[in-house]
Design a protein around this nucleic acid. Structure first.
Length: 258
DNA sequence: GCTAGAGCAGAGGT
DNA sequence: AACCTCTGCTCTAG
């Protein structure tokens, strides 16, 4: 009797029409911003995160626009650039387009690896340095690398995964900055993914707002998988920046560069 | 307030 | 770490 019915009655015919286009996103965002708390501790068994708003709307909008101009995303693997604007990935013997766009920036010579692909970091841009320094100021941690995922709309997503611990400094949290569309973000404990123990540990669901910072502290990444699921109602893009500290001598040896 | 169809979200197999 | 298929839930028009 819910919320939806009440909302429907309040709305005029004009508003109802707008609701079908971009309005829901704007209203949703406004609601979220009002309700947002400054700092939120998120805890569960082996999960330790801090959520806060790092940038207000105005600054977030500015940074988003700057990044849209500055960033160069990977469009292919093994040095082959495809006509399609998204990179391809081999999964179960089939080739798929990566359902998002990715870029890596950081200190000279650093590399990030996943699914057998090795991505060489591009040099920091002014905007990325600005965001990185803001995160350092807020957290007290320094970072030498950032992985950027751009989700064009609610169809773009990333499946459940953990970040590769072998090349990360475990003492340094992973700092995730969100700009643009609000998206759901889900943590699931590794033991809750199969069979009997499935019901014991519930997933932890968050909404990541425009300008927000999510700090994933140790040992979160050891026990919990995370994902950004499909949300078809979302029509706007989101840029996510995950700042990390990579330990050089633990890096896998690169065979392929992009 | 109820019902049925459409569309979406989540889980498992590949 | 991707898609496809199946199932069950929610939304919404009538």
């Amino acid at each position: 009797m819910d919320k939806f019915v009440t909302r429907q009655r309040k709305r005029s015919a004009v508003e109802a029409d707008e609701w079908k286009t971009e309005e829901p996103f704007k209203k949703y965002k406004e609601e979220c911003e009002v309700e947002e708390e400054f700092l939120q501790k998120i805890e569960a068994e082996g999960l330790d995160c801090d959520y806060s708003l790092l940038f207000d709307k105005e600054e977030g909008d500015h940074l988003f626009n700057q990044l849209e101009e500055e960033l160069e995303y990977f469009t292919g693997i093994e040095g082959t650039f495809l006509s399609c604007d998204k990179a391809k990935l081999q999964v179960y013997g089939k080739s798929y387009s990566v359902p998002r766009k990715q870029a890596t920036y950081g200190d000279e010579g650093l590399m990030y690896s996943f699914s057998g692909v090795h991505l060489l970091a591009k040099p920091w841009t002014p905007t990325l340095e600005h965001i990185r320094d803001a995160v350092t100021k807020a957290t007290g941690h320094t970072f030498n690398f950032v992985l950027i995922n751009r989700y064009n709309d609610g169809h773009d997503h990333i499946g459940e995964h953990r970040d590769d611990e072998r090349e990360l400094d475990p003492a340094c949290p992973i700092a995730s900055v969100s700009l643009g569309a609000v998206r759901d973000f889900i943590f699931r404990h590794k033991d809750a993914r199969t069979g009997s123990s499935k019901l014991q540990i519930k997933p932890v669901k968050l909404e990541l707002a425009h300008g927000s910072l999510l700090l994933m502290n140790y040992p979160t990444n050891t026990y919990w998988y995370h994902s950004l699921p499909v949300r078809k109602k979302v029509k706007m893009p989101r840029i996510n920046l995950t700042f990390r500290r990579i330990v050089k001598n633990r890096q896998k040896t690169g065979i392929k560069l992009v």
